[in-house]
Simulated assay, not measured.
Amino acid sequence: MLKGVDIGGTFIKVLWEDGSREKHFIKDIKGNRERFLEKLRDIVLDKNPTGVGIAVAGFTSKTGKVFKSPNIPVLDGVELHELFKDSDVRIVVGNDVSVAAFGEWFFDNRDSEVLLLVAVGTGLGGGLVVGGEVFFGVCGSALEIGHHIIHSGGYPCSCGRHGCWEAYCSSYGLQRIYREYGGETLGDYVIVEKAKSGEAIALKTVEKFKEYLALGLMNMVHIFNPDRIILGGGLIDGMRELLEDIEEKVKELSEDLPSSCLSIRFSDAGEFLGARGALAFIKQHQSDIDS
């Protein structure tokens, strides 16, 4: 049986072909490379899968080497295929949001010609599927859209630059906006709940967050001309009812021609967005081999 594995900074999530799900807490060992990789290997090979798709947050090459994973630095420089070279299990590896985008197309949006997934949680990432094929770029690092600059000299980003889209549209971006408007230091989920209950500062924060989200999405519309934008990720899931007008806001900012082709939807994959994409990725590879 096939399965998808999503390597996150707090959990490794697993989605099996039969719909079974698993969550493995790994935050307590992510500072220890040897223990982390041993745990990862055990999870991937557990129950003898016939093939495994692996989704990794960060700059991951087409050959499966993780060059840089800001939230999981123990993976920096790791060749994931080497970790399983003595196993007969077929392994495919890709950037988490790129393969998640493929999962959105594979399971729910096969009518889309150009699908863009924008996932917002701890950070912001993107994935692009064109004609049913993931666009990875030359090296595998395409669609790091969270690190395109929307404000020169702006907020510091986790990548070390300033003014990145992620610095404004992410968990820490939302927290920063809330503090600047006079709020205390709170978790993103608390701010969202306060907005839902009508707190003025939280509502103002969410509106500013939406301005930055719409601005970045406008840039994506003008660059990629997608027919479908899917919004997902933990923060988006929590804010969903507060973002009902986001398509309208994006179209107001965008040119008429690309707007006329566009619809914006929310992912239904929830926290298994990456694992579902990884499962779709290995299913596609297995299908290509069988044919």
Rank of each mutant, 00 (worst) to 15 (best):
M1W: 03
D6S: 09
I7M: 12
G8F: 00
F11H: 15
L15M: 13
R21S: 03
H24W: 06
F25M: 10
K27I: 01
D28F: 07
K30W: 04
E34R: 11
F36W: 07
L37C: 09
E38D: 09
K39G: 00
R41F: 09
I43S: 02
G51I: 07
G51Y: 04
V56N: 00
G58T: 05
F59A: 13
K62I: 15
K62N: 15
T63Q: 14
F67L: 15
N71S: 12
H81D: 02
E82K: 15
R90A: 11
R90V: 14
F102I: 09
F102N: 05
W105I: 07
W105L: 07
F107M: 10
D108Y: 13
V114D: 00
V114M: 03
L117Y: 04
V118Y: 06
V118H: 08
V118D: 05
G121N: 01
G121K: 00
T122R: 01
G123H: 02
L124N: 05
L124Q: 06
L124R: 05
G126F: 09
L128C: 09
L128G: 06
V129E: 03
V130R: 12
V130G: 09
G132T: 11
F135P: 00
F135E: 08
F136N: 06
V138G: 10
S141T: 15
H148A: 12
I150Q: 10
S152K: 14
G154Q: 06
S158Y: 04
H162N: 09
G163N: 06
G163A: 10
G163K: 06
E166L: 10
E166D: 08
Y168R: 00
Y168P: 02
C169N: 08
S170M: 06
S170A: 06
G173M: 11
G173N: 10
Q175W: 02
Q175C: 11
G183V: 01
Y189K: 15
Y189D: 13
I191V: 09
I191R: 01
K196V: 01
G198V: 01
G198A: 03
A200F: 12
A200S: 14
I201L: 13
T205M: 07
V206S: 04
E207G: 05
E207P: 09
E207I: 07
K208M: 14
Y212T: 00
Y212R: 07
A214I: 00
L215T: 10
G216C: 10
M218T: 15
V221T: 08
I230G: 04
I230W: 08
G233W: 02
D237Q: 12
G238D: 15
R240W: 10
E244W: 10
E244D: 13
D245R: 03
D245A: 02
I246T: 04
I246R: 03
E248N: 07
E255V: 13
D256S: 12
C261F: 15
C261R: 15
R265M: 10
F266Q: 04
D268H: 13
G270L: 02
G274I: 11
R276P: 05
G277C: 11
L279W: 11
F281V: 01
S287L: 14
I289E: 13
